[in-house]
């Protein structure tokens, strides 16, 4: 329950901080931190335009996309408190329920019959497919390290052994940050602020969405960021008491948002054809974590 509330709070300011960081680093004043939330609220109040090519898939897809991310959030724990749902192997459920949302966002883009949206859909399908092995190997390594297979038990027992686990935590942070960037279609995989539809991934998929649906899709993006931020925070706050854990949580979310902003300000997007290589490299980092776990457990002897 606690994690759900905290993620909701974090999602309110997360994207605002990213935008704020970007505007400060480029020397602009920029909008207020709550501007993205206000945008969504405005969209919720607007009417919508639907393409005559679309079918019921286009109408239901944003709803399912949103619901799948909410469902995934329910699984995420907060330090030593469980998520609302927790069972052995829940991270498999987490990944697959997110994939369901992805499935619908892809077919809804294809539903419009637009060549641009098809292009975005094809890219999104390919990139998110490549990102999944990294996540499963990462969670597998932690499962091996802790002897548990649910998010809650993994995170709450991660640092009971030795301090080397913090080093693994840092590598895992890198992997999770990058997965978050891929899943949210951010730099260096995708540039949300580009002006050319040909070079977009996620933004071009939702060209035809408007009104309430677009609001749902945008808020899903905010929630997703906060969700990955919570996973990262969980790598560190394992056995801390709530008194320290909650400030630590907000600090980590803040640092994550600022670093996303900084990455977006100072990095260029990769060439589309280089993205798959980059995402493959991510899997090898999680294999490194796996080897690290083997070292900690002394399986090499």
């Amino acid at each position: 329950m606690l994690s759900l509330v905290l993620i909701l709070i974090a999602s309110f300011f997360f994207t605002g901080i990213i935008i704020r960081t970007k505007s400060i680093s480029s020397g602009r004043k920029g909008p207020g931190i709550f501007q993205p939330v206000k945008d969504v609220w405005r969209l919720f109040k607007k009417g919508s335009v639907y393409s005559e090519t679309t079918s019921f898939v286009f109408q239901i897809a944003p709803v399912i996309y949103f619901s799948s991310v909410v469902m995934a959030i329910l699984v995420v724990p907060f330090g030593s408190t469980k998520g609302i749902i927790s069972f052995d192997g829940d991270f498999i459920f987490f990944a697959y329920v997110l994939a369901l949302g992805k499935f619908f966002s892809i077919i809804s883009a294809m539903d419009t019959g637009s060549s641009f949206e098809g292009m975005g859909a094809s890219r999104e399908a390919l990139y998110s497919m490549f990102a999944e092995p990294a996540f499963f190997i990462l969670m597998g390594s932690f499962a091996l390290l802790t002897g548990h297979t649910s998010f809650f038990e993994i995170f709450s027992t991660l640092h009971l052994g030795s301090y080397i686990t913090y080093a693994l935590g840092i590598m895992a942070t890198f992997v999770l940050v990058m997965i978050a960037m891929i899943e949210n279609s951010r730099m260096p995989i995708d540039d949300p602020k580009t002006h050319l539809e040909l070079t977009m991934v996620h933004e071009v998929m939702i060209l035809d969405n408007s009104g309430f649906d677009l609001g749902l899709i945008l808020s899903t993006g905010y929630l997703k960021f906060a969700m990955y931020g919570t996973l990262i925070a969980n790598l560190y706050i394992g056995e801390l008491s709530l008194l320290y854990a909650i400030p630590a949580f907000f600090f980590i979310q803040f640092a994550f948002a600022v670093s996303v902003g900084i990455i977006e300000s100072f990095m260029a997007r990769y060439r589309m054809s280089h993205n798959p290589q980059f995402i493959f490299a991510l899997s090898s980092v999680s294999l490194l974590i796996f080897l690290g776990v083997l070292l900690v457990l002394g399986k090499f002897v």
Partner: peptide
């Protein structure tokens, strides 16, 4: 159930809105 609930909210919110049909946006 949650999907149905969100779908219901969407229906409710969109009830009083202007819903237009137009060709796909071709950039």
């Amino acid at each position: 159930l949650f999907i149905l609930a969100v779908w219901g909210i969407r229906k409710l919110v969109n009830r009083s809105k202007v819903i237009a049909i137009a060709p796909t946006w071709g950039c």
